[in-house]
Design a protein around this nucleic acid. Structure first.
Length: 160
DNA sequence: GCCAACGTTGGC
DNA sequence: GCCAACGTTGGC
């Protein structure tokens, strides 16, 4: 099993929202960065993912979900009414099954596992020596999906 | 709201 | 293929 972290703005989709969603499951769509997308494509069933709340009053790691469906074509890229639409598909009217096979953007489905016992603030994560190489705490790094090593994962859990 | 840092775009 | 301009991210 692999470990990951994904950022979300809690106004859009918080750990509470995932916990109260039907089947406690949400589609993780709208990722429009190639590096983040490639990490999502590497996710396997049962991989665990920290949910990180960003761009809000209390930024930090809030809970854990697991991957319940591996990468598939992100439907929002074909949806002209979605803010995540990729106009390359709409303009050319190529939102076909064939296109979906080779779709540029991917989504995964995740299912709620647990809240952490408390929200672990970014300041505490930055102070963890075990996390010093992780993109989450590196200055200027904006990656929204990233892998965690076993050691990094355990170091975060130990903060609780 | 500010602004540093980054990824993407597009002219050349 | 370079690189300036632009838009976005995201902490503070």
């Amino acid at each position: 099993m692999n470990y990951w972290l994904m950022k979300t703005e809690p106004d859009e989709c918080s750990i509470d929202d995932i916990a109260t969603a039907p089947k406690q499951t949400v589609i993780w769509d709208g990722v429009r960065n190639y590096q983040a997308r490639n990490f999502m494509r590497a996710m396997q069933l049962g991989d665990q993912v920290f949910i990180y709340h960003s761009s809000c009053r209390q930024v930090g790691i809030a809970g854990i979900v697991e991957v319940s469906r591996t990468a598939f074509a992100d439907p929002s890229q074909f949806d002209a009414t979605s803010p995540y639409v990729d106009n390359a598909y709409v303009d050319n009217n190529t939102a076909s099954a064939t296109t979906a096979e080779a779709a540029r953007w991917s989504a995964v489905e995740v299912t709620y596992l647990q809240h952490l016992t408390r929200l672990l603030p970014l300041a505490e994560l930055k102070a963890l020596p075990a996390l010093s190489a992780n993109p989450l705490v590196r200055r200027g790094q904006r990656l929204s999906v990233m892998p965690f090593t076993d050691a990094e994962w355990q170091a975060v859990l130990a903060l609780q």
